[in-house]
């Protein structure tokens, strides 16, 4: 197992009138190599949760284990943890600062105290993984497009060779193609390297297509946890907390309500197509 959270709670502004419970008794286990989507609306506690996983925030109570080790144990190396659990924040503008893309990606591995050759080798490898080739190395990070900035930021984390990659809203503000490109790349990385990936998002459509498990957060608690099929079956409750399910789920449920003998479990467009064709007694011709 790679990450285990036990009864973690966190409050903002403790001891003041503005005290707000951001996390309320969260327990969660994420095995190595899993592709997990964490969904919730703004203020549901999802961003707070992921910042606990690499020790940027400290729980008010509860325990967090990484590879079985208590990260709050005295003398635990938090900086090492941060390189193992790589967190890419929502806005790449918050981390890009160097004169060119290549040196920016070098920042992380250099902070690990690696020799210069190793640092550069890792930067090359990471940029290659996100699909930014040589021509981009000497470009200023501020000249890049939104999608490219996002990739440079992800490369900056990948170069630290994390075992767990956490992405906070990696597609916010991107156009549809840019969004698909980033998510495809992340999915490929997850497959090839067996990396554990946590994708934080509020887009059900995005998440359903890629992840094997969805954790739905609301008001500092975990509301649902399971495969996309299982979670989207609760689409009415999801709607109540302002999330809803992918549109395909509504189509299938709508059909079922009208007496269509259709399998309502599908969550992606392809699955839904096949389910409908089957219900109509047609084989998929493609």
């Amino acid at each position: 197992m790679s990450i285990k959270i036990e009864h973690v709670s966190y409050s903002y502004g403790q001891g003041t009138a503005y005290e707000k419970k951001a996390l309320d008794d969260i327990s969660l286990e994420i095995p190595q190599g899993q592709f997990v989507g964490i969904i919730g609306h703004t203020g549901s506690g999802k961003s707070t949760l992921i910042q606990h996983l690499n020790g940027l925030m400290r729980a008010s109570s509860g325990k967090i284990y990484f590879h079985g080790e208590d990260i709050y144990r005295e003398g635990y190396d938090m900086r090492a943890l941060r390189s193992k659990v790589g967190l890419v924040f929502q806005y790449p503008e918050h981390q890009l600062f160097e004169v060119d893309v290549f040196s920016d990606v070098c920042f992380g591995p250099r902070n690990l105290g690696l020799p210069p050759e190793e640092v550069e080798a890792r930067a090359r490898e990471a940029l290659d993984q996100v699909g930014l080739g040589e021509p981009y190395y000497k470009k200023s990070p501020f000249e890049l497009s939104g999608g490219q900035k996002r990739r440079a930021a992800i490369a900056g984390i990948l170069a630290m060779h994390p075992e767990v990659l956490i992405l906070d809203e990696p597609t916010a503000g991107l156009d549809p193609r840019g969004r698909d490109e980033i998510l495809d790349q992340v999915a490929a990385l997850q497959k090839e390297r067996g990396m554990t990936v946590l994708l934080v998002s509020h887009s059900m459509e995005d998440v359903a297509r890629y992840v094997e498990r969805i954790v739905v957060m609301d008001d500092g608690r975990i509301r649902f946890d399971g495969t996309p099929k299982k979670v989207f079956a609760h689409y009415r409750e999801l709607e109540e907390i302002g999330l809803g399910a992918p549109q395909t789920v509504y189509v299938l449920r709508g059909l079922a309500e009208k007496g269509f003998p259709v399998n309502t479990e599908a969550t992606t467009v392809e699955e839904a197509r096949d389910a409908i064709l089957e219900a109509l007694g047609r084989r998929n011709v493609c």
Binding site: L56, R82, V88, H94, Q95, F107, G108, G156
Partner: peptide, 16 residues
């Protein structure tokens, strides 16, 4: 608030 976020983003990359 932004300063706080940037600090965290850089700390995630091992900044000290």
């Amino acid at each position: 608030e932004e300063t706080d976020k940037i600090m965290k983003a850089q700390m995630a990359r091992g900044a000290d």
